[in-house]
Amino acid sequence: MSDIQSILSTAKRTLEIESKAIGNLIGQLDEQFALAVQYILESKGRVVVSGVGKSAIVASKIVATLNSTGTPAIFMHAADAIHGDLGTIQENDIVICLSKSGNTPEIKALLPLIKIGKNKLIGITGNLDSVLAKQADFVLNTYVEKEACPNNLAPTTSTSAQMAMGDALAICLLELRGFTSSDFAKYHPGGALGKKLYLRVADIVVNNQKPQVDVNSNVKEVIVEISEKMLGVTAVIENGKVVGVVTDGDIRRMLSKYDNINGLTAKDIMTSSPKSVDVDTLAVTALELLQEKGISQLLAFDNGAYAGVVHIHNLINEGIL
């Protein structure tokens, strides 16, 4: 069996090497980066990102990040480009080429074809003396001292640096576009992430029953309402307005406090000033309030009118929690 400490030591060394390399990128940023961002921002075309080998995989990830943050992008494998896929690049498109050495044969073959099309070229490379760096309109320096691989061969640190540079590009563009969480939701409508960005309390309460009792309802009526509506709570209404709530917990406290519950009404056992949210509130915000207050339900209101109940189980079922 391998020595646990030896494994952890190797893992820590790898992360230290890569984190140092990414930290060094800060000092390698210059005006070229800012100019590249501005050009992409003002462009009427897409961003075509290309590379070979591990750089191609990183290029695909950068494309995904750009697309999800408001910058139209498409991936083009450099090898495929010189064998028929060059038509991927359209007028006004900006091309980003990734290559650690900047002298990869496929990249070298692709560069003059990009120039013929008069598309602007952004080079992401760790070699400023390379063909890519010399032919690019903008050069983003991703130089790393060494790979995390002990043989200094397997692309590890270099691809981490490329990935980080791509993220820096995407986030700069995101902020300059004023890209909001609402915009983000349009690109991520599915899954828990999407629901956190667009699901509102109104979308939940409409599917729940709407428990309510009169302020003078007796205890039995209160218990029956809570039980039938299955939300562990009921609103207490007086003159058409909510004046309190009775929860399962209130019922338990009542039974502990009173030996005789005959004659008790909702008003006697309710909690005044119940915690509530507006129906337009994001569901994730409602969840934060539930967690902050240590409660399971919130009353929902629509323009001041009682609209129903949102329960923490609703949020669990939606995958938000």
Rank of each mutant, 00 (worst) to 15 (best):
Y143N: 14
L128H: 05
E145Y: 01
V139P: 09
S130I: 05
Y143F: 14
E147M: 00
S130P: 06
L140G: 01
G126A: 15
G126N: 02
F138A: 05
N151Y: 11
L140K: 09
E145R: 09
Q135A: 12
N152L: 06
V139C: 12
D129I: 05
A148D: 03
T142H: 07
Y143E: 10
A154Y: 00
Y143M: 05
V131E: 14
G126R: 02
K146T: 10
V144S: 01
L128A: 13
K146G: 03
T142S: 06
T125A: 02
L140E: 04
N141A: 13
E145T: 09
P150A: 11
P155G: 02
V131H: 13
L132G: 06
C149D: 09
K134H: 11
T157V: 11
F138I: 13
T156D: 09
G126L: 02
L153S: 00
C149R: 03
L132V: 03
C149A: 08
E145N: 15
N152A: 01
T156C: 14
F138Y: 15
Q135P: 07
Y143I: 08
K146W: 01
S158P: 10
A148V: 02
Y143Q: 07
G123C: 12
Y143H: 15
D137Q: 14
P150T: 05
P155E: 01
L153R: 04
I124N: 14
G126M: 13
S158F: 06
T142W: 04
K134Y: 07
A136G: 08
L140I: 12
C149S: 08
L132E: 09
K146R: 10
N141C: 10
A133F: 12
N127G: 13
N127E: 12
F138C: 11
T156E: 05
A148C: 05
T157N: 00
A154W: 00
E145H: 13
